[in-house]
């Protein structure tokens, strides 16, 4: 990481971008940059546009103005962006093993009509080692704990060697052990040059792995180095609630934590 030039080309550059599902903008006027080996935390209340921004970067939510540049291109090159969705939508009874889920991350580079080769299986095993779930490879995905499922989806997101990683609320409902494991994994991936964009309302995560913070509430409240942006005033404006309290670990928002 230290060999990098002081200001490498950004892995992700968003400038004046607004996104909309069709009926009015869902998220307005976003401008920030993310460099390789660094992480940006997206922080905001529920419905503030965190998931919309992640999906907008992926091209899944239409952009109505501004620009999004992923790895120097206007559309994310296939396989270069890893994405960890929220796990709430996943059917816990779906008959599939952890390693089969991780293998899905290889499908795109594998192409249609082709079956996984030895190389793909090795990549899956390596990704599972990276997130510390090697011994659970053959387990049913739905029987894993919430934290293990998220780490499994992280393995799927990195199994094809992306250069930009997007995580949607990866820390929701995790116990301390899975939280520590996830932070450790993200740190190692960053050290390998991966750029990370992670949505959360957990300041511990922001402090542990993110250099910069983007505060959102339907539009951009603030962006910049973590310690400059995470002021009580900014956080209160983001959550539009003067009942917000902050300590060094968490934002305490009545009615917002514990999802």
């Amino acid at each position: 990481m230290n060999e990098n030039p002081p200001d490498p080309a950004p892995a992700l550059a968003v400038s004046g971008a607004s996104f909309s599902y069709g009926r009015g903008p869902a998220l307005e006027d976003i401008t920030f940059e993310l460099r390789p080996g660094e992480a940006v935390a997206l922080i905001g209340p529920n419905g503030s546009g965190k998931s919309t921004l992640l999906k907008g970067v992926l091209g899944l939510v239409p952009r109505v103005s501004g620009t999004v540049t992923v790895l120097g291109q206007s559309a994310a090159p296939a396989g270069s962006v890893g994405y960890v969705p929220q796990t709430e939508d996943i059917d816990p009874h779906f008959p599939i093993t952890l390693e089969q889920v991780v293998m899905m991350g290889r499908y795109r580079s594998l192409g249609w009509l082709r079956l996984p080769s030895r190389r793909d299986r090795d990549a899956v095993a390596h990704a599972l080692e990276t997130v510390g779930l090697g011994p659970l490879a053959k387990s049913r995905f739905g029987q894993l704990s919430g934290g293990q499922q998220k780490r499994g989806l992280l393995a799927r997101a990195v199994v094809s060697g992306p250069r930009l990683l997007l995580l949607d609320e990866p820390f929701n409902g995790l116990d301390q052990e899975n939280r520590d494991a996830l932070i450790g994994t993200i740190d190692r991936l960053k050290a390998g040059g991966l750029a990370v964009l992670v949505s959360t309302h957990d300041l511990e995560l922001a402090r542990a792995v993110c250099e910069e913070v983007l505060l959102l509430n339907g539009s951009q409240v603030a962006f910049g180095p973590r310690d400059e942006v995470l002021t009580l005033d900014n956080v209160q404006r983001t959550f539009q609630d003067v009942g917000v309290e902050m300590d060094e670990h968490t934002v305490v928002v009545p009615g917002h934590e514990g999802h």
Binding site: L60, A76, V81, Y83, D89, M104, R108
Partner: peptide, 22 residues
């Protein structure tokens, strides 16, 4: 049969499937 692995991916996780560029 020709799209079976993609169909399974789609069934498992719609958002992840779209995010992968399908």
């Amino acid at each position: 049969a020709l799209t079976l692995k993609e169909q399974v991916f789609r069934a498992f996780d719609h958002t992840g499937f779209s995010a992968a560029g399908y």
